[in-house]
Design a protein around this nucleic acid. Structure first.
Lengths: 144, 144
DNA sequence: TTCTTGTCGGTAATGTTATTACATTATTGT
DNA sequence: ACAATAATGTAATAACATTACCGACAAGAA
């Protein structure tokens, strides 16, 4: 079931750009970074992103309209998506870092809530926005 | 702590538009529906939405770039946000219906995961996309 | 080979969502 | 009245995403 075919040139360039970044990138940021590699139009980016997301190599962050490379293993056999199911993201508003959290408890609970309501879930988004450990200690926006 | 001041004209119009809709509306859909009430520019909608969201009268659905009126009580005293904390949404791709789910278990688990990582959460988004009970039974897109 | 089919890629134009900047009007507190 | 604050009006533009169309190329069938 797993698709082992190689990435195309455009797909490789896009996923590399994301891997080299320490923060999420918007499609247009990716485009800008790949101009020197011959990218000229948004669609080249969006098409590559679609495929990469399909394979689980890239995640879309809905609350940011931006994209990150997946940090999970991906060497062995699960066609796409993650083993347990949903992944949660902890996104730092200060430094842009994104942590992927794979928690079976939350996944199980969401599944239960869905089936309670006879809701057939296709895709789930969980995104926490806030401040990572590194940034939370700093002298940021001392409130009031 | 709770703010009991009345809504402005624009805010009332926007929240009414959302309440009268059985599906989420984008800012521009709201704008279109309020043209006859004198709305002329996107900013009038976005400004009203900001205030309404601040008060917890409206939710933003990140995965849709759209907005819904909050269905919770809101008569008694909680300044904004919801009692337990986070709200999850079950969004039907077929009919557009949105269910609000307030689940303490998930909330608690996310809090625990955050504190584990010394992450200070400011705002959390949970959105399930799929098919509601009414639509799941229908003869939709018979797969393959 | 030739034909078809499917995937990928290039380009342009357009559609959709959201913000910045600036000027004005209404409301509130003293 | 007066100053301070919040809300509004308008225009322009930025940021994000898709549709439409066309060409290149590879794999399989006739």
């Amino acid at each position: 079931m797993t698709d082992h075919s190689k990435l195309t040139r455009n797909q490789s360039l896009v996923v590399s750009a994301l891997r080299e970044s320490d923060a999420p990138l918007s499609a247009y940021m990716i485009l800008d970074r790949l101009r020197e590699d011959g990218f000229r139009a948004p669609l080249q980016v969006y098409r590559a992103l679609d495929k990469l997301i399909e394979r689980g190599l890239v995640h879309r962050l809905e609350s940011l309209n931006a994209f990150v490379a997946c940090r999970h293993d991906h060497s062995h056999g699960h066609s796409h998506g993650h083993q347990g199911g949903v992944v949660a993201f902890a996104i730092c508003e200060d430094c842009g870092s994104v942590a992927e959290i794979d928690d079976p408890t939350i996944n199980a609970r969401l599944m239960a809530l869905a089936t309670d309501r006879h809701f057939k879930t296709e895709k789930t988004t969980i995104e926490m926005r806030g401040h990572c450990s590194a940034c939370a200690g700093e002298s940021h926006t001392p409130q009031a």
